[in-house]
Structure formats: structure tokens, C-alpha cells
Design a protein around this nucleic acid. Structure first.
Lengths: 146, 146
DNA sequence: TATTGTTATACTCTATAACTATA
DNA sequence: TATAGTTATAGAGTATAACAATA
């Protein structure tokens, strides 16, 4: 017997639907990342740096959905692996500016094709319109005030 | 200068858009969970149990997006906290059947109102149609084959 | 005083392999 | 042989507070 409840079915729970959808999309990305010994978080950092050029850490944290203490550790590792460089900002010495290196860029370029193929695959099966609509709705959801 | 790349803008990256949207929705839920000393994962388990009644662990793992080894540990804690009970299935003795207790149900009921308000809030700001559409698209995304 | 970032700490989840018991 | 679940272990992220340096 099903529990008597007015709770929305779990498949219509927004947090869970978002989590499951992400698991689906990330599965092939994770296979790729495993092959190059990179975590999801590092990959997000590379992606932000590739797009933004040189940025301060707070921006990376916000864009890549990471907390600053996590980012500190992640960037330390990535710096030791030669994927990023860091320098103190000359105007505001509190700021650390981070930049992707040639090696970091090479890793990103060699593997973003995989992301692209995954995206193309989804577009082919769902249609470009629906995918754009989904991204629009996700963006709109972020602007909801609580 | 913006990096020269044909990579889709990070705000249009599906995995990141899903992650950010989830962070937005989960923020108020996390506040609620923190007040009752419950992790997101435990909350998902409660939600599955409330909806499904007595189920085997593999089902919980699938529905709540958890790996079995994580679930083993989580259920052990929840059992010691009196939120769930476990028993061996009499027909197939490999299976462990899990059920929510009165206490677990009470915790769930006392707090799901918060989830409901969050949902109502989103519905009010985005509109019911858009929210339904979003859930439909997320569900459709899950059926994409890679 | 507020902000940027680091360090320290405790907790938790993730991921995998090896294992037990049962089918 | 395959499946359900447990245990062990390594690795990593999360969350918070306290702190240093700078604005």
C-alpha cells in the first residue's frame, strides 16, 4: 500500500530531478575525467579559467560552485600539476589572480570534445529547441528569491 | 580579453546549469536540514521511504541517487537514530527490506512543509506551467542514451 | 571595519575492490 | 554464476570558525 501523503511524487521533486538529470549527463563526462585523473571540481575550474582568462579566486568559486577553502586546496594541487598559475594582484594585494597555463589549456582542449559530443548527442535526441528551453528555465530558476 | 574558444558559455553548460539551479533550490532546504541535524542524503532516503513504504535497499539507492556502500552506512545511522527499521526478506534472504518508523515519519512530516513552501514559492514566481515544463524536460533528459 | 584568501578541523560522501550469503 | 548487501580503504568535498593581510 502506498503511503498516504500529499507529498509530491519523488520523480517530480525538483531537487531530486535536478540531481538525477545531472547524474545522467555527468556519467559519460566522469568516464572521460577518470581517464585523465581529473575530478569534476578541477574540470569546472579549468572551464571557468578557459572562459574568463585571468580571474580572482572568489569569481572562480562563484562560477564553479565551490567554497573558497575547497578552492584553495584544489588550486594548490592544480598549480603543482602545472595547470594554473597564481599571482598577487598589484592593485589590491588581497586578491590572488589565477590563470590557466598552456598545459592546462592543452588538457582542456584535448577533452572538451567529449563534452561537446555529449551535448550534441542530447541535442540530437531532444532537439535543439527543447534543450535551449531547458537551459532558459534553469537560468530562470536561479533568479527565484527565497 | 576573452579566451578564444568555441566552447559554450559556462552559463549554458548543462552540467553546471543543473548544479547551479540545484544549489539555488537547495539553499533554503539546507537551512532547514541543518536545524534538524540531517544530511541531504538522509533526507532523500526519508522521502523515498515515505513514498514507497517498505522497499529493498537497491531501490532506495536508485531513487535517492546513492551508492550501496554509502547507503549501508547511512541506514545504519538512521536505524540507530530510530528513523528506520530493517528486516531480512523471507522469500529472498539476500534482500533487506527497509521501512520508515513512526519517528522517521514524524520528522518527515514536521519538515516537508518547508519543502512545500519552497516549491510554492518557485511556482508563484515562475508560474505553474513553466515549472511543470521544467520537470518534464528534466525527466526527458534522463532518458537520453549515450 | 570589511574583504580576500588561508589554515585547521570534523564530518560526510564517493568510488572501488574484496567479501559473504543467497539465489 | 549472478545478485544483494557489507566491509574496508583511499580520496575528496563540505562546512565552519579562526586567522592574517590588506583595503
Amino acid at each position: 500500500m502506498k503511503a498516504q501523503s500529499h507529498t509530491r511524487s519523488i520523480s517530480r521533486s525538483l531537487p531530486i530531478a535536478l540531481l538525477r538529470a545531472r547524474e545522467t549527463v555527468m556519467a559519460p563526462v566522469r568516464d572521460m575525467l577518470q581517464g585523465i585523473q581529473m575530478t569534476e571540481q578541477k574540470w569546472r575550474v579549468l572551464r571557468v579559467l578557459d572562459e574568463f582568462g585571468e580571474v580572482e579566486q572568489s569569481t572562480i568559486a562563484k562560477e564553479a560552485c565551490l567554497l573558497l577553502p575547497s578552492l584553495t586546496r584544489i588550486l594548490r594541487t592544480m598549480e603543482s600539476e602545472g595547470q594554473v598559475t597564481r599571482r598577487q594582484d598589484s592593485h589590491d594585494k588581497r586578491r590572488t589572480m589565477v590563470r590557466i597555463t598552456g598545459e592546462g589549456h592543452r588538457i582542456f582542449e584535448e577533452n572538451r570534445l567529449v563534452s561537446h559530443e555529449i551535448y550534441a548527442n542530447i541535442e540530437e535526441q531532444m532537439g535543439r529547441h527543447k534543450l535551449d528551453r531547458l537551459l532558459d528555465l534553469l537560468e530562470e530558476l536561479r533568479s527565484v528569491k527565497f
